[in-house]
Amino acid sequence: MDPFLLEALLNGVLLGGVFALPVLGLNLVFGVVDVVWLCYAELVMVGMYAVWFLHVQMGWPLALAFVTCLPILAALGLLLHLLVVRPLLAAPPINQVLATGGVLFVLQGAATLVFSTDFRSLGVEMPPMELGEVFVSGTKLAAFVAALLGAAALWAFLKFTYVGTAIRAIARDREVMPLMGVDPKRIYLIASAVGGGLAGLAACLLVVQLDVHPFVGLSFGPITFMICVMGGLGNMLGGFLAAFLMGLIVSTGGFWWNTEMSYVVAFLFFILVIFLRPQGLFAR
């Protein structure tokens, strides 16, 4: 096979791994709380700034900055739920979307005020790795492995713990949960914290590949939402698979045409999917 195509395919898989985390986080929160966090990519942006600030400005070791980013974002997820989502739980969906969309602009504005619009770089780069005939960026490979580990940890949490099982149950039937001794309010809080934590992990993986600026969310937010819809909103496995599909489309699109064009192709594919399978590619 053409080594360049092979490289494009490989990069597509790596990219899919990075898309997967925010997709899982959004789907988790939507499945449980039934509210779309429109500001999800901006939470990731805050996490990227947190890592950059702790590592570059404060001089913390990178690993420590990563580890600190997760609880910060989990707390941010909790705050978002308590301050914005919870008061609107009974409100019409459009109000919820407007509110979390408002948070998006607030976070962009706050980031601009605090950090200006400069592009901030972590300045870390791992040496490229040679796999057979192709080279892959060591950073991307490390990010991919971390994303898979994060997804596996999430899966184990949902599959094997009491709280995780209740999270999967509540996504189907909210009303009977108290009969099982489950306080839905508490499950909402846990899902929001985990959703925030996943944004934090995504931030760690992205900040080594992209420079941070207040609008960096625009470079992966829209595609994240497209993937969620393609996989079926709230469908974790569907979203996970769709993330890889989208990663492959974007990166092979770049091989056949060019990078700008590849996003156009991805968007056309998305439109095709919502026409043909509005319930999502992987709906059962």
């Binding site: 009491y162 099982t165 149950a169 189907r172 009969l179 001794g181």
Partner: peptide, 30 residues
């Protein structure tokens, strides 16, 4: 309501209301 099972009250609701996408054992775990 969620504290009542702890008191020893269990309610099998009308139409059973199982979690259809969870396994039997996972339903028991909930």
């Amino acid at each position: 309501a969620h504290e009542l099972p702890g008191l020893g009250i269990a309610h099998v609701p009308e139409n059973r209301r199982l979690f259809p996408h969870l396994t039997v054992e996972e339903n028991l775990r909930v």
